[in-house]
Design a protein around this nucleic acid. Structure first.
Length: 224
DNA sequence: GACCAGGCACATC
DNA sequence: GATGTGCATGGT
């Protein structure tokens, strides 16, 4: 199974190069949820500015944040970009969280994983990546997160043939490793790290810890 | 000033 | 079901 060894090597090389990531950087599970919405197509630095505004106003609490008018919410999260649409999306998530579990992320862990994911995907503004971020980092259940970097890295190494399909790529990872929350978190964080450092729209392969995995005899698909 | 950043929904064909 | 477009700030 070449796909298994490629992914295992990837994890080993990244872990060796970067070490333990302990991502996601948040003080509470709820902060993870807010960050997951704010980081949509946005650099993390801008997300921090928006989160700082919410912290300063002591609003990083589901019930308190839900009571904030959407227009005010938009002003507070403005530095993260797309602020009007993100304010609505955040409000939608808050409404779900409060009606479903009275604002408790711990309680969401008792919902079967596939059902929880379906419910999150029904929320307007929550797509597959945001749903998986919430499940993996806030609810701490094993749902692998695929993002732009994951796709770019896999496509560039010839492990995955475009076009991009989220569920297909997610399945490549989940079917090759045991369900393990901590491992999923670390692997995803490492892929983001190396993607950020070396796999932008113009890739910088020099110095990349994964450069030894570049195909020299044609692409090898991750899918069987 | 141009380009980019850890998406998503919606319109159109 | 594939493809295009709007959403918007801040860094390089």
């Amino acid at each position: 199974m070449p796909q298994l060894s490629a992914l295992k090597k990837t994890y080993r090389l990244l872990n060796l190069h970067y070490g333990l990531q302990n991502w996601w950087p948040a003080e509470t599970a709820f902060e993870v949820v807010v960050g997951a919405i704010l980081t949509q197509n946005t650099s993390w630095k801008n997300v921090i500015r928006a989160l700082d505004n919410l912290k300063r106003e002591r609003l990083l609490d589901p019930h308190r944040l839900f009571r904030v008018p959407i227009q005010r919410l938009a002003e507070l999260i403005r530095p993260s970009g797309y602020y009007r649409i993100k304010a609505k999306r955040l409000h939608n998530v808050l409404e779900y969280l409060i009606t479903r579990s009275n604002g408790s992320l711990n309680k969401l862990a008792h919902i079967p994983l596939t059902q929880l994911r379906s419910e999150l995907l029904e929320i307007n503004g929550v797509g597959p990546e945001t749903a998986d971020c919430i499940i993996l980092y806030a609810v701490e259940q094993p749902s692998f997160v695929v993002d732009t970097y994951t796709f770019r890295i896999c496509a560039r190494h010839g492990w995955y043939t475009p076009p991009f399909n989220y569920e297909r790529l997610k399945n490549c990872f989940e079917s090759n490793f045991p369900e393990d929350v901590k491992f999923y978190q670390e692997f995803h964080a490492l892929l983001v790290r190396v993607g950020h450092d070396y796999c932008g729209t113009t890739p910088q392969c020099a110095g990349c810890p994964l450069r030894t995995l570049l195909p020299d005899s044609g692409p090898q698909s991750l899918e069987t």
